[in-house]
Amino acid sequence: MKRNVFSALSGALFGAGLLVSGMIDTVKVQGWLDVFGDWDPTLAFVMGGAIIPMFIAWRVAEKRRIALLGNDIPAKPVQKLDNNLILGSVMFGAGWGLVGLCPGPALAAVSLNGFGGLVFILAMIGGMVATPVLRRALTPKGEAAWTSAR
């Protein structure tokens, strides 16, 4: 129960941060992704600002090894760039660029995005459900498929 409460609080704070920082403004996000054109760098400060408390949290977490509510701190995955990581990220980046929505802001702004926002989320969920099949096809033989949730 405690876990669910803190989970909901984390989600609420994350959503508030996405709203306040402008990450839910799709045109601003596309402006930030327009690195080869008319680049608007302001959202880099949002990402940088988020990384600072997270960096400290990781230092503490890796020293403690166990979270306050008893779970193990997730182990660092094998530090290797594989095809799945790069191919998946390229697909994700392409979709992100097309409409300026990534999963966090799409969910945080679902109440503001109207019908289009719902269409995006339903298509995203459809893609997520279809992925286990695709993932098996794309994982090279002999290599374990990544199953840890990030």
Binding site: N84, M91, M124
Partner: peptide, 12 residues
């Protein structure tokens, strides 16, 4: 975009 984001983030 939704399909690309859904599939891409799960593969990656």
């Amino acid at each position: 975009a939704g399909l690309l984001v859904g599939i891409g983030t799960r593969i990656a």
